[in-house]
Design a protein around this nucleic acid. Structure first.
Lengths: 363, 363
DNA sequence: CTGTTAGCGCATTCAG
DNA sequence: CTGAATGCGCTAACAG
């Protein structure tokens, strides 16, 4: 019974002795042996968690450099420390808006010495849930999420235990989760007002699924502006393809009092409607004025250049990530979450009827 | 000396006994105890690595379900197994082309039960190198990379040891690394030929940094087509802003024999030139015909709709990821890497001078 | 200031 | 077919 421990260390020592230059990643005890100290000292030098005499510190550092030792992240994480990784769940990556958010997140994460595990939910609450769970299995230190359809979201504080979570772009039912949003309703309302100022009375709102938070918030802003002006609203939801946009628009334009302006709920629908407009031979803005939600790189070069509400995608990613790292650093899980709302800008180009040669940005 | 082992197991057992319902993730030994078997049996049931009698398997499974046990990924990875994660390094995420690649990669990874750790290099070889190293520290099972500027890339087989790597979109100096590319030169050549068929003799090629593989490969295709037609080439590199594009174009157009057509090296430059063209009041295609490399969502709605070479972004991501998973499954690190080249398509719209109402795609 | 001991959760030995 | 022992690399908790 007294033997095993002895036998163990002997065999271990021999193994090390026999294969000192073996091609194997150096471990902390390799460093310790070379520096003639205990592993704890090495650990302390690395983490700076306790004071070590300058002299030994140098010896250890030399050994580290000589061996090109790098601590094993996995072992550290396994030991119950931070994993120095966060999870990022978003619907799609091929949507430039989401991609910009993701870019900002990876950038902030690097600044904090963190890695990010990224995954797509395809707007499916089940996938989203499964991926969140998977990330928790991987012991991420925090999770950032652009939630899928809010009504069916299974994301809740309880799932995450004491792991911080922040939702952005869209909220989550659980109010104890931190959230970063943009002024969806306000942006939508202001652009609607702008169209009204151009003299439009019949403005239609064409949108994607109503079950998406952003879409319905933007609808609310549109409705508010219309009602305040004593105008009737004319919303159309579930426009999910260019063909559908064409059908819808055709029908609308044949109406007794056809719309003279259209507002789209997001880039995807903007694209559909742009296609429909072109196929129907409608001229913008004379036949139909046009304003969209969400700016994109080439909005300036469509014909005519597009007036849009611009959301600060990267800014939102940055703010959300910083908030998460704040929570991680403090080790706190708030009982009532923060709710940060970022301002949007209106970019006036020519599709709304403005005559500006260059875009005009209103804050 | 004989005591500690005994004391150890006693204290461990007591701890478990005292806190059987403690809020703590269940471990394999919790499951084993509940099922009345050894941990190894549980392990075997989980991995299916060895045969277990049907009866015990059921007991174990029941215990797993009851405890909602999920194996600890970190412990597994730490133990020297697969980490079931891959790394993905790319220049930017806000470039829709790269984002589409990334989307495909995450999708394929999920199909394989893998997580992906994503990071951006900002086209900086040093950052790229550091991030690759970081991923290796995290014991990823494989790495996918869209390399930054090839001339300065520090990525090599030796860095990765026996961890599989595949480069895509752009190659890496080390020929032993698997690579997935698209027909850059061929696509560029064909679109140049198309412009020549439209009767153009003076075609200029406006490009981003020459040190990017894709850009210079596309230049080669352009040059080849021009030379074959006995025409003089007229390339311009390092066009890095809209202002620069405007200056360049202005100068060119004031020349004795101004270009009648322009080819751009990628979406970014397409954007710059589009802006310059608009500011200079040039009409496309009558004053200047236009063709770009890389299709984008709204290319159909620019004025006029843009003729482009379309690269299969998602397809490339998928192929690269599948190749990587193949390597991981086989556990092999090839001595000479594969080199897969994916075909591109030419999308004829109207900026080249074609009169098609709808885009025509040539394979 | 420094070293020793112990164990995180799992899977690879090697005995039954 | 099954189980007990062992250690992956690291660090918290305690010695010294």
């Amino acid at each position: 019974m007294a033997k095993p421990p002895a036998g163990k260390s002997v065999s271990k020592a021999r193994e090390r002795a026999l294969a000192p230059v073996e091609h194997r990643k150096p471990t902390m005890s390799d460093v310790a042996r070379l520096a003639g100290v205990g592993t704890m000292t090495v650990s302390r030098v690395l983490s700076g968690t306790a004071r070590v005499s300058a002299e030994t510190a140098v010896r250890v550092q030399t050994a580290i450099d000589q061996l090109k030792y790098r601590p094993n992240v996995l072992a550290r994480a396994f030991r119950g420390q931070r994993s120095h990784s966060i999870g990022l769940i978003l619907p799609y990556l091929y949507d430039p808006f989401f991609a910009s958010c993701a870019h900002a997140v990876t950038t902030v994460a690097r600044e904090h010495g963190y890695s990010v595990i990224i995954t797509t939910s395809n707007e499916d609450p089940e996938t989203e849930f499964a991926e969140a769970d998977e990330m928790l299995q991987r012991h991420v230190d925090g999770v950032l999420v652009i939630p899928s359809r809010i009504r069916h979201s299974r994301l809740a504080r309880s799932l995450f235990g004491k792991t911080p979570v922040v939702a952005f772009d869209r909220p989550v039912p659980d109010p104890s989760i931190d959230t970063v949003l943009v002024q969806n309703a306000i942006g939508s309302r202001r652009i609607t007002e702008h169209l009204i100022e151009h003299g439009h009375r019949h403005i239609t709102y064409i949108a994607l699924s109503r079950s998406l938070f952003t879409i319905s918030a933007r609808f609310a802003g549109y409705r508010r502006a219309m009602q305040d002006a004593g105008l009737e609203i004319c919303p159309i939801f579930d426009c999910t393809s260019e063909e559908m946009a064409e059908q819808i628009l055709k029908l609308k334009m044949e109406h007794d009092t056809p719309p003279t302006a259209v507002i789209t709920s997001n880039t995807l629908v903007t694209r559909y409607v742009l296609g429909a407009v072109s196929r129907l031979g409608l001229r913008v803005p004379s036949d139909l004025a046009f304003a969209g939600f969400d700016d994109f790189d080439l909005a300036e070069f469509t014909s005519p250049p597009l007036t849009v509400v611009r959301q600060p995608a990267q800014e939102m990613g940055r703010v959300a990530a910083n908030l998460l790292f704040d929570r991680i650093a403090r080790g706190e899980t708030p009982h009532s979450g923060n709710r940060i709302v970022l301002p949007v800008e209106i970019v006036l180009r020519r599709s709304c009827g403005c005559k500006h040669r260059a875009p005009v940005v209103i804050h």
